[in-house]
């Protein structure tokens, strides 16, 4: 019985959201606000069960001295400093945890990003095999020439004349082909989600199809 009730709730909420295709209406607004509320509640539980309880409450209850000696209070203070943003006069204190996250990520990312997103990509581009069938050779050629030309398009320090003009124009075509492919792929992913929702309504709720 509970399953039937939950299926009905899910189906009605699905229809509420689909009603937006007609226009913005109270049913859609209800579903939208309900989703925001449930997401908020979910995040509170996530913070409690994944971080606060296992990493703060339990260690304090188990051995407070060890917890204090291990400097575990520092991240807790930083966590609490995030809440300082809620007060007008204390808002500046929230800069410390943000500065920690931003600074730490910046330091970590410099070597990692240069390695993974620059050097490895350049390496993969210049190390193509040019072997296999004609489609693969043409693809490899497009990969090398296309990447270089697309990079040329982002080179704004010189006037676009002669070689730079032609290479950047070809680079735009490569970028457009890439955007088109990504767009088509994204559309199909959304269509797949839509099919999933329609299947749910037809199969699980209405039992029209098996």
């Amino acid at each position: 019985m509970a399953d039937v009730i939950w299926t009905w709730i899910a189906a009605l909420l699905t229809l509420c959201v689909f009603s937006f295709m007609y226009k913005d209406n109270p049913l859609y607004k209800f579903a939208e606000h309900l989703m925001v509320g449930v997401t908020g509640g979910y995040l509170i539980c996530l913070a409690w069960f994944e971080v606060i309880r296992p990493q703060v409450v339990n260690p304090i209850m188990k051995d407070p001295a060890a917890w204090f000696a291990g400097l575990q209070f520092i991240p807790v203070i930083m966590m609490l400093l995030m809440l300082a943003r809620l007060g007008e006069k204390t808002a500046w204190l929230a800069r410390f945890p943000l500065a920690f996250i931003v600074g730490f990520s910046a330091g970590v990312q410099i070597p990692q990003v240069i390695d993974a997103e620059v050097l490895k990509q350049v390496q993969s581009t210049v190390q193509v095999g040019f072997d296999g069938g004609i489609a693969q050779v043409a693809g490899d050629l497009l990969l090398v020439v296309g990447t270089i030309c697309a990079l040329m398009y982002f080179f704004f320090s010189m006037p676009r004349k002669r070689v730079l003009k032609w290479t950047s124009q070809f680079g735009v075509l490569v970028l457009m082909a890439g955007f088109g492919a990504s767009f088509g792929y994204t559309v199909m992913a959304r269509i797949s989600l839509l099919i999933g929702r329609v299947l749910f309504l037809m199969r699980d709720w209405l039992h029209v199809i098996s």
């Binding site: 497009l142 990969l143 990079l151 982002f154 680079g171 490569v174 970028l175 082909a177 890439g178 792929y185």
Partner: peptide
């Protein structure tokens, strides 16, 4: 290929 070339340049 085309998508990878564009993405690689952007990356």
């Amino acid at each position: 290929y085309a998508n990878t070339a564009a993405k690689r340049a952007i990356m």
